[in-house]
Design a protein around this nucleic acid. Structure first.
Lengths: 243, 243
DNA sequence: ACGTGTATACTTGTATACAAGTATTATAAT
DNA sequence: ATTATAATACTTGTATACAAGTATACACGT
């Protein structure tokens, strides 16, 4: 399975990560990207050999991925579950759910500091667009939402986010890489929407919040298309068939 | 730390569990019950010795507990975070959130089969009350909500539940053990409320649902008191001090 | 008395070894 | 050809070994 020495996950984001984390991040990307097809049975030994590590970190990674629902740990072997349109919709269901909850809390809080932080991240996003850095853009996008969710100091909402984040991150990474190449002008719209988000938080305007949430989630179909393209691109790059 | 050879988690529920799971379940109970105080640093080696297993299953257990926010994995050692009133309220925030979501879905579905299943579980709960089996009652209580949540077939809502369940289970177990001893007549109220739940699902009556949810969550304060009592009882039983 | 450096004991992360169980494959008998 | 049985290869779960890093304590020099 050493068809690609390339890594899908940005290696510089893993500077301090353990082997287990590296395996988890990379494996997750390959599954989300469709490089490893749904239904495939993964063996700990094979994975260990592929990644040139021992079974210990591999086991750790598999347990992590199982807790994210992208593989299932069965009697013999870990079965890849993959990410389809259904899963993506479900992920966004949950994001909508928790972000609505968070916004409700925010309306009872002082949000000036939060707004400042978000503005900074937004600036970063703009720079990433300008310099056509898809990965950086994805990173800041994720960070934007993470900061919002973290701001209410609710450990169990945070927990949900922590579980969701890796898959979201992978998905958005792939989506943005496609988008920066094929729908570059579309990124302005995303930036604009994040500005709306900030406004909603600043003014504590529930309607504005709903609006920006909806614009955000109407975008999901677009992201699903991106993922589909990404999966096709990648598989074309790897195996020279399927036209 | 071998002050108690007694296990807090019902051993018969672990018939097919691995060592790692056993350690996780038992350790979780001891933390929730306050037998292991917040702030304590756990060492993998010590735990392995205490449970007479190797470090492998202990590591597994610690990672599990960390993903539930009841310990924090730091540079050196795992620091016990414990469960306070704040955490319990947060857990119920999340439960309220996902059960509301689930109910919304249910109003668009055929619920006849679900209602039947729930009725069965409710009967079981009544039997458990009759025979004063606190653990069995807790089990069926958890199962009741698990069945509801599972019925909509939403894998990421399920994922949230899977993360929440172990802590909830432990908490409810301890709470029910106290309640069966000190507030036996109160159990009727719980049973009644679950009947209300079923009615709400059967009639798809949103208001009834809200009502039963609220009655359920008003109960949280009571459960917190139970936990507090449970922690006192247990610590009194273990170390002969503190009056 | 106090700061500094070193020895020591303990920590995690990873690799490897072993045991028990399961699927598969080959072989043999009918 | 087919079925039953035995051998084999592969699976996970657990134990153990090793390496690298970190905190602690103690001795030493100032």
């Amino acid at each position: 399975m050493n068809n690609s020495t390339e890594f899908l996950y940005p290696q510089k984001w893993l500077s301090k990560a353990s082997s287990g984390d590296r395996v988890a991040y990379e494996l997750r990307m390959r599954i989300i990207a469709g490089l490893i097809e749904s239904g495939t049975t993964l063996s700990e030994n094979k994975l260990a050999a592929d990644f040139s590590v021992s079974r210990s970190p591999v086991r750790e990674a598999l347990r992590t991925l199982a807790s994210e629902n992208i593989i299932r740990l069965e009697r013999m072997g870990a079965v890849v579950a993959g990410i389809t349109e259904k899963e993506i919709e479900e992920i966004y269901d949950v994001r909508l759910m928790i972000e609505t909850f968070v916004f409700e809390r925010l309306t009872h809080m002082d949000t000036s500091e939060l707004v400042m932080e978000l503005s900074k991240v937004l600036e970063m996003m703009k720079v990433a667009v300008k310099y056509r850095d898809a990965d950086e853009f994805a990173y800041q996008d994720i960070l934007f939402h993470e900061i919002i969710i973290g701001s209410i100091g609710h450990s169990y909402i945070q927990l949900i986010w922590n579980n969701l984040k890796p898959v979201m991150e992978g998905f958005i990474l792939l989506s943005m890489r496609v988008r920066f190449q094929e729908n570059y002008e579309d990124l302005d719209r995303i930036v604009k929407n994040h500005e709306l988000y900030i406004d909603a938080i600043k003014t504590k305007d529930r309607d504005l919040m709903i609006q920006s949430l909806h614009e955000n989630f109407d975008d999901v179909q677009g992201k699903v298309d991106d993922l589909w393209r990404s999966q096709q691109m990648l598989s074309k790059g790897v195996k020279q068939q399927d036209d």
